[in-house]
Amino acid sequence: MQSAVMKPALALYTTLFLVFLYAPFAILAILSFQTGPEGGPQFPIIEWSSYWYQHLFGLAPPSRVAPLPIGESLFRSMTLAFMTMIVSTVLGVMSAQAFRSRFKGSGIVFYLIVLGMMVPGVLVGLGMALVANFFGIDRHWWSTAFVLHVVYTFPFAFLVMLAIFNRFDKSVEEASWSLGVSPARTFRKVTFPLIFPGVLSAMLFAFTLSYDEFSRTLFASGRDLTLPLAIYGTFAVEIHPNVFAFGVLTTLFSFALLGVYAILMSLSVRRARRIAIQEE
């Protein structure tokens, strides 16, 4: 009886959660197809048009709505996210590897790492700005903002890899060592292929968190704006439909990243299974 009640309740809860999660995107997509060149959201749609998508790429006739500054800011955000992804993932793998063995002060080090994701971004960004001003350091997206992004995303990569290593069968490495293979070669040929799905997850976490980061970047990026800051500056006074169109394209880009992640994950899982079968 209890199971018969719980299943419909859980199904209803899941449905409502998905509606709550994706309803804003659906509304965003609908509003992005209103006609131009006048700005401002209107609902219901009087006339459907792809004007605002053309406006994003400079293909539409001039209007009172200025184009979004997505050129250089998009390049900065993508570059910053890529740099953060590489550094945070490498640090996460190395730190999780170190925590596979007990060492003195491991508890303190663990909480110091996790602290980076717990401290509010406004406080960290403001603190970085004050420290930079005190020492006369110029703030840039590739220096001070980059450091804050790594501090913020590194704990996520670390926790992902820590979970992966907690389920890792160490006997596979011991078998390789017993055959005279060096630890470095064992990690490269045996360990890394098996933990590669976790590495992909850590990379995805670091990239998406850095790409969308606002509060920490606001205080640490200096004059050069990243994409979230540039978009925020355009609709601080009035929201135009070109922002909706760009939001749809950004969301589709995120879904594309998830698709690539799923493909790479399936390939890595198949490879890990082949390695396990060969070892057996």
Rank of each mutant, 00 (worst) to 15 (best):
L209P: 01
E279A: 13
T226S: 11
S101D: 08
F246V: 04
S171W: 00
V119N: 03
F192Q: 08
A175L: 07
M6V: 14
L257W: 00
H140R: 15
V109I: 14
F158T: 10
L257S: 05
G40L: 10
S63P: 01
P37F: 01
R167I: 03
G107V: 12
F255K: 08
L91K: 04
R188F: 10
I239V: 15
Y211I: 15
T226E: 07
A220I: 03
D224Y: 08
L130N: 12
A256M: 12
A132H: 06
R223V: 10
S63Y: 00
L258W: 05
S50N: 11
T89V: 14
V114S: 07
A184S: 10
F134Q: 11
L74K: 02
A262D: 09
V150A: 10
F196R: 12
V122C: 03
L74S: 12
L267Q: 08
G92Y: 00
P193Y: 11
G180F: 10
V90N: 03
V90F: 04
N133P: 01
R100L: 09
L18I: 13
N242Y: 03
F82P: 01
V124I: 14
F187M: 12
P228R: 13
V237C: 00
K189I: 00
F43I: 06
T217A: 15
G127Q: 08
V147H: 06
L227H: 07
S32D: 04
H140F: 11
Q278R: 11
R271L: 10
A256W: 09
A11C: 11
P120Q: 06
A145Y: 09
D212S: 12
G36H: 04
I70Q: 02
Y232Q: 09
D169A: 08
T35M: 06
G136L: 11
F25H: 00
